[in-house]
Amino acid sequence: MKWKRKDLLGLQDLSAEEIALVLDTAASMKEILSRPIKKVPALRGRVVANVFYEPSTRTRVSFELAAKYLSAESVSITASASSVVKGESLKDTALTLAAMGADVVVLRHPLAGAPHLVARTVRCAVINAGDGFHEHPTQALLDLFTVREKKGTLAGLTVAIIGDILHSRVARSNIWGFTKMGARVRLCGPATMMPPGIEVTGARVCATVEEALEGADVVMALRIQKERQQEGLFPSLREYTGLFGLTRERLALARPDALVMHPGPMNRGVEISAAVADGPRAVITEQVTNGVAVRMALLYLLAGGGAVDG
């Protein structure tokens, strides 16, 4: 099949075939990354604008490198350094970038739906690099890629996502992605951070972390943010770790070959113990490598690049 979409705004919109196409393309890209000279001319002359309204290291660098490896020109703009501080609206920023010739706008924004506003405004492609609590589709695609690479398939797997689901765009995108690819998703977290009606996505909410982990093939721990305690959403990190922390003892409930994932950055000793994070089942650093391959695939598909080996 061929890629037909102008934008990648979320995995909710994508079909299983489209997700598979991205993952297959990413596999070719990963092969390029293993070469001594990691550069192909596929997107020569194309311009990628990384627009980050929120601090991010790994996602931004990952997109920058992905663009470079494909020979695209890339510019990165962070909110504080741009005219945003002068009060320019998102709509005008988007129009300006498009007028300067950007082929792809990669947008990270603290407010849900911001990429939709940009996508409606400009004719060039828009990639959602995380919008508020809505979606983080490229993170989920790299998670899917990592699991598929390790397990050979996604269909039939059981994935447990543990933590603050309410404020997690990673969780939402992963629920859509894994569910569409035929996996079952279980969720567990504090009741105050479990969004209402999440079951409509096809995920199942578990009452205890033990229930969620039992026989799981993939275990994903989410970052818990200290500020949520000040907001009154949970009483203390100590209690959180006691109830939901991913420890070796708890991990023993999952399948012996279960993968441990974390979208980063980690709070070691809080949502995940150091022993688990550094243990043999963790694929956390491989997630980062695969992130570059997946983003290369997306830039390539959305910018309509030529042959990969050019």
Binding site: A112, G132, F133, H134, P195, P196, I198, V200
Partner: peptide, 13 residues
């Protein structure tokens, strides 16, 4: 409205 749509859209309910 806080409900399944706010959950899907990631908007505060």
């Amino acid at each position: 409205h806080e409900g399944y749509m706010s959950t899907i859209l990631g908007l505060p309910g």
